[in-house]
């Protein structure tokens, strides 16, 4: 089993390294940004049991922060990323502290409402340039000129590194004592509280971490595509990241990555279909909720387990 795992890991690593010679690097980078975004969202839902329907507010504003710092202030991209992450985290502290006062479906509605408020603010604020968006953000070299980023393939490895950093940060977090407590709170908040854990502080920290990583994804995307627009702060974007996590499999750690690649690929192919993309996305939501709630990764592991198990286990939920 572990031998098998090492082989899988090696194949994946080789694929990730070779990918820009086989696929369009900008597409890959975009997909990686969304993958990180979806992982950040899933951290909150899968491990804290909180479904945010407003994660675009972190993703989108981080893009604006990055663009403003790099373009208007002519600062290096590292500071832009830092500003994006910091801004998203700060926004996460404020909205998170309020949203965790309610649970379940109300939490989803509250995050959605706050995201809408941020959207309206972005429409009005001068630094976002409203409908036009923040265009032509220069690509500057990283590490004081050491890494040139004009070449898409070079930038791809930077983005891959950022993605892996985020991904392993989530992995470490989930497997830390902190992540375990979070899961305990998700499964039975009353009990966790009676054991002396301050549930709200743990939830808030998970929320802020998730917001910060969504911010990292959003500012990286702005670095790659060189623009930041209202689309990335919109409710539609919040819905899209939910869809990615759902398609891949909620609560699985690889699911959101798979989901992000599937959805971005689909959007690429359907770019000419216009509004019909919405219909298809909606249909995917409906089909998954009705029939495949575990998502691609969840259903596949289930299928694999059933195939390799000598007898089907009864009473699976």
């Amino acid at each position: 089993m572990s031998g098998q795992r090492i082989v899988v890991a090696l194949v994946l690593a080789a694929a990730a390294l070779a990918a820009p010679w086989f696929a369009y690097p900008v597409f890959l980078m975009t997909a990686l940004c969304f993958a990180l975004f979806a992982c950040a969202f899933n951290l909150l839902l899968g491990y804290a049991g909180l479904m945010s329907f407003g994660h675009a507010m972190f993703f989108g504003t981080a893009g604006y922060f990055y663009g403003h710092v790099v373009k208007e202030w002519a600062m290096p991209p590292e500071l832009g990323l830092l500003a994006g992450v910091g801004g998203a985290a700060a926004l996460g502290v404020v909205t998170g502290a309020l949203a965790i006062r309610r649970q379940g479906i109300y939490f989803a509605m509250i995050t959605l409402a706050f995201a809408q408020m941020i959207f309206f603010l972005c429409v009005q604020a001068p630094f976002t340039h409203g409908e036009d968006g923040l265009q032509g953000i220069p690509r500057r070299a990283l590490l004081g000129g050491l890494i040139p980023t004009k070449d898409d393939r070079v930038l791809y490895y930077v983005v891959l590194a950022i993605f892996l950093f985020g991904y392993f940060a989530i992995y470490r977090f989930i497997h830390s004592p902190f992540g375990q407590i979070l899961k305990a709170i998700r499964d039975n908040e009353q009990r966790a509280v009676s054991l002396g854990y301050e549930a709200d502080r743990y939830k808030l920290l998970a929320f802020v971490l998730s917001a910060a990583l969504a911010g990292l994804a959003g500012s990286t995307k702005a670095m790659v595509l060189q623009f930041a627009t209202l689309t990335d702060v919109s409710a539609a974007m919040s819905g899209e990241v939910v869809l990615m996590a759902l398609v891949g499999g909620l609560g699985t750690i690889v699911g959101p990555v798979v989901g992000a690649f599937v959805i971005i690929t689909m959007q690429n192919y359907l770019a000419s279909a216009g509004e019909f993309v919405l219909v298809i996305q909606g249909a995917i939501f409906v089909v998954i909720v009705i029939a495949f709630r575990k998502g691609l990764v969840g259903e596949l592991t289930e299928w694999w387990r059933r195939r390799s198990a000598p007898r089907p286990a009864a009473g699976d939920d």
Partner: peptide, 21 residues
């Protein structure tokens, strides 16, 4: 409850997408 939210969100996308189309 979250699944109802997601399902009806999907239904809204379908309906609005078709009208836009």
């Amino acid at each position: 409850h979250l699944y109802g939210f997601l399902l009806t969100f999907g239904m809204a996308l379908i309906i609005e997408g078709m009208f836009q189309w």
